[in-house]
């Protein structure tokens, strides 16, 4: 017969069988060994999360510094798209959604919130699925969207942002998008806008196509805008806005990873404390049981004599 006694107050939720203070196995050393093994593994996990936190803190500091310069640059570029008035075109729209994610996980919900945002739009019954394409920057968005919407993937880009992002990366992506041959009416970049070290918002940045800009009423006020200049301007602006959005996203990702790893380290610390207490109690229980056995054995011998 075996029955489970929960160690009072120490372990409210035994994670698996190893942690159960099983009266039948207190006697042998296996439980003690199991606990010490678990303790060791949690400790090494803590070491990993701790160093990951340190690495991302350094990366975050760099990203934040670079973002400050990129922001002023990006704000100017993006204001061009935001301020231009475009008329709504009737009929089915061709749309491109650019998912600015990264290759790596372990950064909280930074990547998944972008994927969720896009998937919500793709699964919307009103959405014109045939006319919507996704550009997946980073392995995470590709993996997340390929499962359900493989037909909608236009481009996927990885290995971006391994080292810190430069303008050349963004312009290469813009180049790919332009030469992909998909003529979109509108495009949106879905990215995490960095707010502070602990907060970001998943936002969208509108991008206008060449035609939309050329047909816009507000473009008329600009002098001597021949098609060639406008096209170069738009392409450069696309790269600039892309660069800015990706920079924001990279900073959010690093800060999010920093927070996630900080939490993981704290949780591991808590688990270590619990396990250490549990380990010591179990050890004492084993000693006590052994003592009782010896004493009662001796007493039984004495009674015989």
């Amino acid at each position: 017969m075996s029955f489970v006694v929960k160690a009072v107050g120490i372990l409210q939720q035994p994670a698996n069988g190893v942690l159960l203070w099983n009266n039948t196995s207190v006697r042998n050393m296996a439980t003690l060994k199991d606990i010490s093994r678990r303790l060791k593994s949690v400790k090494s996990i803590q070491k990993i999360t701790k160093s990951m936190k340190m690495v991302s803190a350094a990366k975050y500091a760099k990203a934040e510094r670079e973002l400050r310069a990129a922001r002023s640059y990006g704000m100017s570029a993006k204001s061009f798209y935001d301020s231009l008035e475009v008329e709504k075109v009737e009929g089915p729209q061709k749309q491109v959604l650019i998912a600015a994610t990264s290759d790596r996980g372990l950064c909280g919900a930074a990547n998944s919130s972008i994927i969720k945002n896009i998937r919500a739009q793709l699964t919307d019954p009103k959405q014109n699925l045939e006319g919507t394409k996704v550009v997946a920057i980073g392995d995470k968005s590709r993996a997340g969207l390929a499962r359900t919407h493989a037909a909608n993937l236009l481009l996927s880009i990885n290995e971006v942002g391994k080292r810190s992002l430069v303008f050349g990366d963004a312009s290469a992506i813009a180049q790919q998008l332009i030469s992909s041959g998909f003529e979109f009416d509108s495009a949106e970049i879905v990215y995490n806008k960095f707010k502070s070290a602990i907060a970001y918002t998943t936002s969208r940045q509108k991008i206008l196509s060449n035609e939309a800009i050329a047909n816009s009423k507000s473009i008329q006020v600009y002098d001597s805008t021949d098609a060639d200049v406008l096209r170069s301007f738009q392409e450069f602006n696309l790269a600039s806005v892309l660069y800015y959005a990706m920079k924001e996203n990279a900073t959010s990702e690093q800060s999010s990873r920093m927070t996630a790893m900080d939490n993981a380290t704290k949780n591991a610390g808590e688990l270590i404390n619990k396990l250490t207490t549990y380990y010591n109690r179990t050890r004492q229980a084993v000693i006590t049981t052994e003592l009782i056995e010896i004493i009662s054995g001796a007493a039984a011998l004495e009674q015989k004599n």
Partner: peptide, 25 residues
């Protein structure tokens, strides 16, 4: 406003009288 991706020189600066720029045209 005058900026490059990695450096900002002027942000909404008001103390500028004139700017000469080389353009394609």
């Amino acid at each position: 406003t005058f900026a490059s991706p990695s450096e900002v020189f002027y942000t909404q600066a008001k103390n500028v009288r004139q700017i000469d720029v080389p353009t394609m045209s």
